[in-house]
Design a protein around this nucleic acid. Structure first.
Ligand code: FES
Ligand code: FES
Lengths: 134, 134
DNA sequence: CATAAATGATATCTCGTTATAGCATATTTG
DNA sequence: CAAATATGCTATAACGAGATATCATTTATG
């Protein structure tokens, strides 16, 4: 950890979409509402399509819409598709081996912490966080 | 979070030095014992000098030695001098504003977690972690 | 004094992430 | 049909962290 900007963007996009599930949203609309550079936003949307979270509708008045139920898309899935979850399994100080001989106070603290984080990521769906928000 | 490689290197170097406090250690010696590329190691050492944790002795049989007591160098000081501690005060998902309207389960979990981490960093000195280790 | 071995300082390279740009294709709308 | 507005695709640029390379300077040692 932590997560990349691309992962943040992805989470931002999908959570916004979850709050506007009825609509099919275009990159332009998303760009107007989210603080993400337009060309990069389009790349990220493309990736999210390829990852199967959303699908695209081409042509004028096209856009993006969920291809899976938001109840079944977990935050962990999104992180996994962008950064991978492996980063969560590392020492918070970035060491391969604990330089403090596995005796440092970081070790156990971070281990239980990251398990908590992982648990939340795995149990929280886009539906869970889709609450009133503009 | 998380911390940069440079921060990891710095912690690695200083914790190694704390276990060899008696000695004045050269970059070559440190390079032989730590898994850090030599030229970069020298840069990091230079930064640690400028930050006042260690001082350099020039000339043949020169090297580096603590300029402050290891009892008074806290992990938080080291992180502060490399990455800055500000990174710890951010949403773990990398958002400026919580996109979930501050209602997401990450929020409170991460907030208390990072406080715990910060507490450990602020209370753990190099002396505390300097225990038998080669 | 000359050599060896160390740090000081700085310029450059690499590489992955982030960001940009442009053209092709699809589809709605008048 | 033609224009407008989407996405698909892909090439390229910008940027920063990490890594490398050089040369100057300092000092111990023979
Ligand atoms: S330093 Fe990371 S677990 Fe000990
Ligand atoms: S998403 Fe980071 S605090 Fe809610």
């Amino acid at each position: 950890m932590n997560f990349s900007k691309t992962a943040s963007y992805s989470l931002n996009i999908l959570s916004y979409m979850a709050n506007h599930e009825e609509d099919q949203l275009s990159a332009s609309i998303l760009h107007e509402n989210l603080d993400i550079p337009y060309p990069y936003l389009r790349q990220v949307l493309s990736n999210l399509s390829k990852s199967g979270f959303i699908r695209s509708v081409r042509g004028r008045s096209g856009g993006f819409i969920f291809s899976r139920k938001k109840e079944e898309i977990y935050l962990a899935d999104i992180i996994e598709s962008t950064d991978g979850l492996a980063s969560l399994n590392q020492c918070i100080l970035g060491f391969k081996e604990c330089p403090f001989n596995n005796q440092c106070s970081m070790h156990s603290l971070w281990e239980s912490t990251r398990n908590s984080i992982l648990k939340v990521l795995k149990e929280t769906s886009l539906a869970d966080i889709s609450r009133r928000r503009d």
